[in-house]
């Protein structure tokens, strides 16, 4: 990959790449199947180190993993919403991140869960917080010759819940008009911390830091959640396109932020 630079692409699930090559979005000389690299197929969890998710692990392994559904339900939500069953056999969270679509269903969950992207390249290895990974539609911090190897997610704190919800016009198999991924940590009867991330309302997934920080120390009530949802709407910078208008999308950010926070609070209460 280093040898061919921008003329090389990594093939994991191929559900984005093969379509992009067919419509000539990228003209490449080399496609490298990375599914045989052990590190890229790793899926491991420990209470001390958290989750290591190889970039070539397909969605079905994510949502069938008992640790992920128990500890990171927001990531479970994302993995089970991406494409249909056929796509989920091949497509993975790593490809969803590396493809860097503003509408990617996994990226808000990764941001909400505090994930870092582990990158390897000709100059060595580096790690980047997922909220800094995407730089524009289809663009990321990956330099020519660099490869996304895995993602690391810290172990969940006590009483932590996470949720991803999106709006689409049909029930399955569609691109998010808006998506919202959140995580909430409770401390007794107040919110210890919260992270909110938005999909499809800007050129990259958006980390709505102010909306999340505002919740710190607040009671986990519908009233607090409504106010955080208003703050999240201010972080959204959507465009009008075939999937929705600016007004509809901003409205949806409010609705989905409220619903995902309420869901994450419920999950946090049930968590150990």
């Amino acid at each position: 990959m280093a040898e061919k630079g921008a003329k090389a692409r990594a093939l994991a699930g191929g559900t984005d790449l093969l379509v992009q090559l067919r419509v000539k979005r990228y003209i490449v000389d080399r496609v490298v199947d990375v599914k045989h690299i052990a590190e890229m197929n790793e899926l491991s969890y420990s209470d001390s180190k958290g989750l290591v998710l190889g970039a070539a692990v397909p969605c079905y392994r994510v949502y069938e993993d008992k640790h992920i559904s128990a500890k990171y339900p927001g990531l479970y939500d994302s993995a089970s919403l991406i494409g249909g069953i056929q796509i989920q056999t091949r497509a993975g969270i790593g490809g969803n991140l590396a493809n860097a679509a503003p509408s990617a269903d996994a990226i808000p969950s990764l941001i909400a869960l505090g994930a870092t992207a582990n990158i390897a390249g000709p100059k060595g290895k580096r790690s980047v917080p997922v909220e800094h990974f995407c730089t524009g539609p289809g663009k990321s911090v990956l330099q020519d010759g660099e490869l996304l190897v895995s993602m690391s997610i810290p172990p969940p704190q006590a009483k932590m819940g996470s949720t991803y919800i999106r709006f689409i016009p049909r029930n399955e198999m569609d691109i998010a008009v808006v998506g919202v991924g959140v995580s909430v940590v409770l401390n007794g009867n107040s919110i210890k911390s919260a992270r909110i991330a938005l999909a499809s309302v800007g050129p990259t997934p958006i980390f709505a830091t102010e909306a999340g920080n505002w919740l710190t120390g607040k009671a986990p009530t519908e009233d607090s959640v409504m106010q955080a949802a208003e703050a999240a709407k201010k972080a959204a910078k959507p465009i009008t396109d075939m999937r929705g208008t600016i007004e509809q999308r901003i409205h949806l950010v409010g609705v989905l932020t409220k619903r995902s926070l309420l869901s994450a609070i419920t999950r946090a209460k049930e968590a150990r």
Binding site: G14, T15, L18, D33, T89
Partner: peptide
Amino acid sequence: GRIVNSCLMLAVE
């Protein structure tokens, strides 16, 4: 044993 779209998989895979 798992379903895939054969248009999105290379034959060499």
